[in-house]
Amino acid sequence: MAGPPDAPLKTSFAPIVDARTRVLLLGTLPGEKSLAAGEYYANPGNAFWWLIGEVLGESDLRSRPYDLRLNTLQSHRLGLWDVIESARRQGSLDTAIREATHRDLAAFASTLPDLRAIAFNGGKAARDGRRQLAGQEGRWALIDLPSSSGAHAAMARADKLARWRQIAAYLQ
């Protein structure tokens, strides 16, 4: 489906992983504030850093400088990336994504020797990611998480956190 002619092409960031990564957490495509800052989950209305900080037992994670946040993720064997490499999108909502170029997630995940689980941050990430991993479901646990986005306000943060906590078992 073609997007509006004025919808700019957005490109995702490089993966935050290493050979010790046990859980790969995938979003869809960085939003406007993240792209402008050059940082994953830069929008303060997004609960990602709070959620993952609570899961990892690092409750002050959001207050740390970005490079230290990434180091903390990696020290806990958690990787971060997106299911979409690039797409046209006006604004930040997943529903506005058009003309998406998807990653080869199965090939990428196969390069991570300690990978145990792939978790999807939100419904679109889960739908797109599961489609890309079709036929590979037995290789890794696939975990659908409620979106950390502030736009997904139908679920309370405490309820989101309860669901997000399930990734901790794969980090041990």
Rank of each mutant, 00 (worst) to 15 (best):
R103F: 06
A87W: 03
D104F: 11
L56W: 03
I97W: 01
L9F: 09
H76S: 09
N43K: 09
L51T: 07
Q74M: 13
A47T: 05
V23K: 01
E58V: 13
R64P: 00
L78T: 07
A106Q: 08
R22T: 05
A107N: 11
A107W: 09
Y41G: 02
A37G: 10
P30F: 11
Y66L: 02
F108E: 10
V83F: 00
D94T: 13
L35R: 12
N46D: 15
T21Q: 06
A96N: 15
R98G: 04
A37W: 10
K10G: 02
A107E: 12
V83Y: 00
T95V: 15
F13Q: 00
S92N: 06
A19P: 04
S75W: 07
V55M: 06
Y40H: 09
S12A: 15
R88I: 05
L112D: 00
G79F: 00
L93V: 10
W50I: 06
R69V: 05
A37C: 10
S75L: 08
A100L: 04
Y40G: 00
A36Y: 08
R22W: 07
N71C: 07
G27A: 14
L25P: 00
A42K: 04
Q74L: 15
A100R: 03
A36W: 08
D104K: 13
L78W: 04
V83P: 00
